[in-house]
Design a protein around this nucleic acid. Structure first.
Lengths: 242, 242
DNA sequence: CCCGAATCTCTGAGAACCCTCAGAACCCGT
DNA sequence: ACGGGTTCTGAGGGTTCTCAGAGATTCGGG
């Protein structure tokens, strides 16, 4: 059928993710998006809550804000790891607080995303984490997306159209990834904006048009177009028929 | 007899929808139409009322105007979600309300419609929301409508007649969707106008004739016609008799 | 067969929508 | 601090869509 979005355990049970952040708006949206991706989600607003929930929820992954109202995120991590050493962690950090503290952490196979982030970016990181932890169906195989003559290697960040390598900027890459994860489905500019751009982006949907036009130049130039405009609605990525 | 319209829970109980808007005219019409679609409906005129009703009505979906007389629509949403996190929301926003667009709305699985809207559009969005939330019988399968040799993929916005793709403008698409949801049933021009065009449309029924003629050119051209005129009454869409 | 009413189709104007260009702002590494 | 690359804003211009008006056509009753 469609794309296998929800990674799951070998036995088919859904992967469990715990989201910890003190902004309810953020945990709410994240929780819904992750659930939509096929994962089982719980949320917590602080360290104590997180530890409590983790005790019997036994998450496979934790999305953890480093700055929490009560306990330091790193201490929370220690607690979580004590209970289940296997758990993988995706940290959320403020842009300017990255440096030293996180540097050591990522060595352990965990990862981090700086706020403000785009949902696509967070999802991609989380998928990667779980995949490397062996929780994906297709195991540790490289993340390869293919739609018609288009293919994207998420790990290598390499995109090819009909075998030719295409160079993309970060935003172009994110946009294309979102399109490729939703082939044949019309996506509105608002949907795209909400997923590909950071949640604090105030701009207009006009940027989406602009980036679609960039993508077309790089991907559809001189070939059968794969990105189609659906007037008044949005855009679709479709493999060329035949 | 199969009821294709009202999505329902696994146990067959009807889906519950709460409509919140301060214009009684609008909630009345919406309430009637939604009930007719097989849903169980309650209406509220303001945020306080909505929260009160939601407490024991436990809606599966809420149609929520962002501009309410008492409480901000988003605050209402927070309250509703606190009580039942699963509820899906279809926001109503004014077209000219410049960028009161809230980031993340479409990302979390919710959706919005701008006023003035057509009833068909609102219904389609609401159906999509519930479908994706897993409340449809046929679960998350793509929305596929089929009448004879005609088929419509609502997600891809693609229509085919006898296998050939047909390009439609937004209005043509909406009109055809309405016809396809009511096959073999004669629909009057007024009915069509009320459903497919925005509720504030001042024009005459003549546009319906015009758009039916457009549709015929694209769908019936050179084939056994499926759109039939019932003189003095309206139009019917019928699959070619075997 | 004839006539009136209903319907169909053509046309054009205005609006909405989308694409692209050019340049400003920003970030980054050197 | 400089320079290249990236992101974003604004405006211009072209295309498509919607809809009203008018004339052509069809239908059905007498």
């Amino acid at each position: 059928m469609e794309d296998l979005r929800g990674l799951s355990h070998a036995d088919g049970s859904p992967v469990r993710v715990l989201v910890v952040d003190d902004e309810p708006d953020l945990t709410d949206v994240l929780g819904r998006v992750l659930a939509q991706e096929g994962w089982q989600v719980r949320t917590a607003a602080d360290g104590a809550g997180a530890i409590g929930i983790a005790r019997d929820f036994r998450p496979d992954a934790v999305v953890l804000d480093i700055m929490l109202p009560d306990i330091d995120g790193l201490s929370v991590l220690r607690e979580l790891r004590a209970a289940s050493p296997e758990v993988c962690v995706l940290f959320l950090t403020a842009r300017d607080a990255v440096e030293d503290r996180v540097a050591g952490i990522t060595a352990g196979g965990d990862d981090y995303v700086t706020k403000p982030f785009s949902l696509e970016e967070l999802l991609a990181r989380l998928r990667g984490l779980l995949r490397r932890a062996g929780l994906a169906r297709q195991a540790a195989a490289a993340a390869l997306l293919t739609v018609g003559g288009l293919s994207m290697d998420e790990d290598a960040r390499e995109v090819t159209r009909d075998g030719e390598v295409v160079e993309l900027t970060p935003t172009e890459f994110e946009l294309l990834r979102f399109l490729m994860r939703n082939p044949r489905r019309v996506l509105s500019k608002e949907q795209i904006l909400d997923r590909v751009w950071s949640y604090d982006f105030g701009g207009r949907a006009h940027v989406v048009e602009l980036y679609v036009s960039y993508l077309r130049k790089k991907i559809d130039a001189g070939r059968t177009p794969m990105i189609h405009t659906v007037r008044g609605v949005g855009y679709v990525l479709k493999p060329e028929p035949r």
